Amino acid sequence: MDDYPPVDRDPAPERYGRLRVQTAAPGPADWLTERAPGYGDFGTVAGVAAPGFAAYARVLHPASLDELPVRWATVAAVHGREVASGTDWHDVIGTDRDYYNLSEYGVPGVWDEHPAEGPTPPAVARILIPVLARHTRTAERCWFGLWNGYGRWDFDRVPTFDTPGRDEVLLAGTLAEAITPVSLDEFAELPDLWWPQDRAWCLGGDVDLVSTYIGGSVELIADLLADPELEAHPVGPRDGVG
C-alpha cells in the first residue's frame, strides 16, 4: 500500500465567517439525526433537507453567461426541452450523466458556465434569506451544518453530527449571517444545512448537487415557487435529488 503524506489543513476556526463553530455536543441537531428508517435516506429530498415538513421545494442553481445568472429553462429551450421538478442538468444539455466533459460546454450567447455544484451559492442565498426570514419567529437564532469533508479545515477535534451520507460540524448564528463565509475567500462554501431554532423550515444542499432543497410550510414553499428571482419547483420528500 502506498504511503501518502498527511494533508496539511488549517486549524479549525472559532468562527466560520461570523458563524460560531460549536465545540460542545451538537444537541441542537439531534432532531435531524433521529430519522425513521427508510425516511430521509441518502439521495432523497428529505435526506438532504429533513423529513416531516408539509411541503418541499427544489431551488435550481443557475447556469451563467458572462458571470450573470441563466435559468435552466432558458438553456433547455435552446435544446427544445423543458425543465420539470425532477430534471437533471445533464438532461437539460443533452449529455450523459457520467460522461459529460466539464471543459466542453456552452451555447454562444446563452450560457457559458455550468450551475455551481455544492451548497447554496451566495447569489441564491441572498435571495432566499429574506423569504426564509418571513417564515420563522427565530431568524436571530439559527443553526447550520458544514460538511466535515471539504478538507480545508481540521475539524477532527470538533464534535460532529451525522446526516445521511455526511458528517456535519455545527455552527450557530443569525439567518443573515449564513452568507458571511464569503468574507473568508472565494473558495469558502456556505453551510450545507440551515434551520431556525423554531424548526419552521430546513434548507439542505450537498457537495455533489446543483440544487438546494427546502422543507417547510405550504405557505413558505408557495412563496419560494412564486419568487421571480428563483427558479424553483415543488418536490416530494422521497424524490431523488440532483
Rank of each mutant, 00 (worst) to 15 (best):
G216I: 09
E117P: 00
L170Q: 04
D2R: 12
T95R: 15
R97Y: 11
F42M: 02
A63W: 03
L65D: 11
V218Q: 15
L102A: 11
A139M: 01
L225K: 09
L209Q: 00
A63R: 06
R141A: 14
W111T: 03
P121Y: 06
P6H: 02
T23P: 01
A188R: 13
L190N: 09
L230W: 08
A76L: 05
A172E: 15
L132E: 09
I221E: 10
L170T: 04
P37F: 05
A46Q: 06
P164T: 06
A57V: 10
D10N: 09
W143G: 00
L209H: 00
D206T: 01
E82C: 14
L19A: 01
V70T: 08
D91W: 04
D223P: 12
Y16R: 10
D167Q: 15
R126S: 06
L32K: 00
V45N: 01
L60K: 10
P115I: 00
A29T: 03
G149E: 10
P62H: 05
L220E: 12
P191S: 07
A200P: 12
E189Q: 14
R166I: 03
D98P: 00
T180M: 06
R9G: 02
L209R: 00
D154F: 02
I221P: 11
L132W: 10
R157S: 12
D167N: 15
P11F: 09
R134Q: 15
S211H: 05
W111D: 00
V48F: 01
T136A: 12
T87Q: 08
T212N: 07
V169E: 02
W153H: 13
G27V: 14
G27C: 04
V7E: 10
A116R: 12
D88A: 15
E113F: 07
A77G: 07
Y4E: 14
P115V: 02
R58A: 14
G151V: 04
T33G: 14
G38K: 14
E14F: 11
H90C: 14
A50L: 04
A12P: 07
A116N: 05
G215I: 08
P62C: 10
P6M: 05
F144N: 00
A76N: 02
P108T: 04
A36D: 10
Y213F: 14
H135T: 11
L170I: 07
V48H: 02
A24M: 11
L220G: 09
D192C: 10
R18Q: 08
D227E: 15
P228S: 12
D185T: 10
V241Q: 00
G47N: 07
S211F: 04
W195G: 01
P164M: 05
F187M: 14
W72Q: 05
D156I: 04
Y99K: 12
W111C: 01
P62Y: 06
L230D: 08
P69N: 13
R152G: 05
L230G: 06
L184C: 06
T212M: 08
P191R: 03
G204M: 04
V235A: 11
W147R: 00
A178E: 01
A139G: 09
L193E: 02
D154P: 02
A50I: 04
A77E: 14
E67D: 15
R238W: 06
